[in-house]
Simulated assay, not measured.
Amino acid sequence: MKSTLIMSVPQTNASKGKVMLKEYNGRRIETEHIFKWMTAHVASRIKTIRFSEQLMDDWYQMEKQPVKMFLFARLLQPPAFFSALSIKFTGRIEFIFIDVRNWDNTTCLEEIGVQQMPSYILKTPEGIYRYGNSTGEFISLHAMDAFLRSVQPEVNDLFILSLVMVNLMAWMDLFITQGATIKRFVVLISTLGTYNSLLIISWLPILGFLQLPYLDNFYEYSLKLLRYADTTTIASWVRADWTFYSSHPALFLSTYLAHGLLIDYFEKKRRCSNEDQNANNLEWLSSLWDWYT
Rank of each mutant, 00 (worst) to 15 (best):
P249N: 10
I34N: 04
Q77A: 13
S254M: 09
G136K: 05
E53N: 13
G260S: 04
G26W: 02
G127C: 06
P10F: 02
H259V: 08
V9H: 00
Q65F: 01
F97H: 09
Q277M: 14
I96R: 11
L55R: 02
H41P: 01
Y195M: 09
L282H: 09
I201Y: 11
A43C: 11
T181D: 08
T4Q: 12
Y129R: 10
A258C: 06
E154F: 00
R101Q: 00
K123W: 01
F72Q: 07
L161W: 07
T293P: 03
L55T: 00
Y214W: 15
P153G: 04
V42H: 01
F266M: 11
L168C: 04
A43Y: 00
T231W: 05
I201H: 12
C272K: 15
I189A: 11
I34T: 06
E283T: 14
S119D: 13
R45G: 02
G26N: 06
P153W: 03
T293V: 07
L5V: 14
K36G: 05
R45H: 08
A73V: 05
K47T: 13
F95I: 07
D173A: 12
N274F: 03
F95L: 07
M172E: 14
E154Y: 00
L251T: 14
R45L: 09
R149K: 13
L109T: 00
T233V: 13
I263W: 10
V42T: 14
V151G: 01
R92A: 10
R74Q: 08
R45M: 03
Q54F: 02
L122S: 04
L199V: 08
A84I: 01
E137V: 09
N133Y: 04
G26I: 07
V19L: 05
